[in-house]
Design a protein around this nucleic acid. Structure first.
Length: 530
RNA sequence: GGGCCGGUAGCUCAAUGGUAGAGCAGCAGACUCUUAAUCUGCUUGUUGAGGGUUCGAGCCCCUCCCGGCUCACCA
């Protein structure tokens, strides 16, 4: 059974699926895995007749720790401040940085993937006082929290440390304050200049109530508090958090022992590496989500994440044949889902995998599976030939007019293929007419092939073929007359014009070129010998 | 140091403990119209190493080796 369906079959009663993200920094392709997984789980639950809601929390009380998109003077002032209180970058109409980030960047990635969770803002949970009972519990039971840190993660906290982060009344930062002395109503705090390396506190000392949005729980407690408040029953997390003694263990323990709730069911998922390595912006390996989305349409991107089991590392190297192969595999699964015979093995429950790869919430699986989908590599090749009417050509290949859906698929793939040719496509996928000189590859032709080129030049000179059809017919006729197998005839043409052993339909290729150039090149190639 | 994932054909990966398989690549062939398409055929293995359990191990147990990621500061 497909893993998400297995999970859906294992639970009972209404489910709340939750995911969250701190709204700063770049969204890597890898960070999309979580949200796609949660979406698939949510859909699997609904499909199994289980009531389910899918929540997505924006952790906008988190401190600003990434200076991306801020002006230099703003960096000093706002590093360490809650993201909900950092102004949006210049030119943005958003109310604050977090809103800007989510609105402008994150959801431009989510929505095209057909993922529409119920959004909530953590800063609002605090401001509305909904977190207050958890804040009080955490402070009342600070001893127990410290014990959990020590026992589960071997993290030693000072005996005066309190699990709360106050927003400094003087400088507005939350990442720099250290709180002590909870008296049941207020805590004392110091805004420390050297609390963290990425932000500087103002040295202010004060005493405030930690309720009503003036403070936030540290990460692990906040996570557990959200589970309790929202009744979360399923929440997966990346393996960085799921490691033994890591964040998840800590939050689970806090949930059980401090807030007295049952932690949600976990789905630990592996990362997505690029070429066997972790994604890293500094090494030029960090592929931003929106970048990869140009080359992979939503369905293929979902497919990439949903095909392996969650605990399987995905090694995605956009270079080489990876992307065309991904499309081919998707098309193969589509064909199998439509009931057509396909070569090779199929993953377990391939039709479920296919359905979840389609955009939700309830796609027409049968129509999508049956749709005509041009092979990606084929499309990329045709794109490079001038004068090809793609829609017409595809209708001809299909043998019937394209449906609305098929036209949309074609448009989407054409854009992806364009982007691919400009970015990741290997040289051999790129078609270059060798205008400058006769390619060296012509030396490898034999006398029959040279004779063929000469004969073709002569025939073309008198017949002057003006269309792809006319050229194609002529190419075949001259080959037949010369007793040369079609394959070798085409090979000679590709060598002469492209310097390669193969290529797109030669007739249309030649028809797209200057007639004078074509004639000159045919004759020039004849004269080249070893 | 702890944790997780992996090591199976050139590459990417499959195989409820029961005859090691696919796709791609490669090679050979077919094709008067998708010539990077399509079709046919073929080749390739000390399943990382060693031990154990079993009638039987790629799979389970133990010990190693290798690769990758990750945690221990913050979120």
């Amino acid at each position: 059974m497909y893993w998400a369906d297995e999970l859906a079959a294992a639970v009972s009663g209404p489910q709340v699926v939750n995911d969250s993200k701190s709204p700063s920094g770049t969204v890597h392709v890898g960070s999309l895995r979580g949200v796609v997984l949660h979406d698939a789980i949510h859909r699997a639950l609904l499909g199994a007749g289980v009531a389910s809601s899918f929540l997505y929390g924006v952790d906008d009380m988190d401190a600003m720790d990434s200076q991306a998109k801020l002006t230099p003077d703003a960096v000093d002032r706002y590093m360490g401040a809650p993201l909900s209180r950092v102004p949006a970058p210049e030119g943005s109409s958003a109310a604050n940085y977090a809103r800007h980030f989510v609105g402008e960047i994150f959801f431009r990635t989510f929505e095209p993937l057909g993922i529409k969770p119920e959004l909530y803002w953590v800063s609002e949970l605090y401001a509305e006082g909904r977190m207050d009972s958890y804040v009080k519990l955490a402070l009342d039971l600070a001893d127990r929290v410290r014990d959990i840190y020590r026992r589960v993660s071997h993290v030693e906290r000072s005996s005066e440390w309190l699990p709360i982060q106050v927003i400094c009344e003087s400088c507005g930062k939350i990442g720099t304050t250290y709180a002590t002395d909870w008296d049941g109503a207020t805590v004392a705090y110091t805004c420390k200049p050297d609390m963290v390396s990425w932000a500087q506190g103002c040295s202010h000392e004060g005493r405030v109530s930690p309720l009503g949005g003036q403070a936030k729980l540290p990460w692990n407690l906040e996570w557990a508090a959200k589970w309790g408040l929202l009744g979360v029953t399923i929440e997966g997390c990346g393996k960085d958090l799921a490691t033994a003694g890591g964040s998840r263990d800590r939050s689970d323990a806090i949930g059980r022992e401090v807030f007295e709730i049952d932690p949600p069911r976990n789905v630990a998922y592996e990362f997505l590496n690029i070429g066997g390595r972790k994604m890293s912006t500094s090494k030029g390996q960090g592929v931003a989500a929106h970048t990869i989305a140009e080359v992979l349409p939503p369905e293929q991107l979902r497919f990439l994440f949903l095909r392996p089991r969650p605990n399987q590392v995905i090694d995605f190297d956009p270079e080489g044949d990876t992307i065309p192969r991904l499309f081919d595999e998707f098309d193969r699964i589509a064909a199998a889902t439509a009931g057509r015979e396909v070569k090779g093995e199929l993953p377990a429950d391939h039709e479920r995998l296919f359905a979840y790869s389609l955009l939700g919430p309830s796609p027409d699986v049968a129509e999508a599976a049956a749709a005509f989908r041009p092979a990606f590599a084929h499309l990329a090749l045709l794109l490079q030939i001038p004068g090809v009417d793609m829609a017409e050509r595809m209708a001809a290949e299909k043998g019937a007019p394209l449906t609305v859906l098929e036209t949309a698929v074609l448009t989407e793939r054409t854009a992806a293929a364009h982007a691919w040719l400009e970015s990741y496509a290997p040289e051999r996928a790129r078609l270059v007419i060798r205008h400058d000189a006769v390619p060296d590859e012509v030396r490898g032709l034999d006398d029959d092939q040279r004779g063929y080129l000469a004969a073709l030049a002569t025939a073309a000179d008198s017949e002057k073929p003006g269309s792809g059809d006319a050229w194609q017919a002529l190419i075949f006729r001259v080959a037949t007359d010369a007793g040369l197998p079609a394959g070798r005839a085409f090979g000679a043409l590709y060598a002469a014009f492209l310097g390669r052993a193969n290529g797109p339909r030669a007739g249309w290729l030649l028809a797209s070129l200057e007639p004078a150039f074509v004639m000159a090149r045919l004759r020039a190639a004849v004269g080249v010998t070893d």
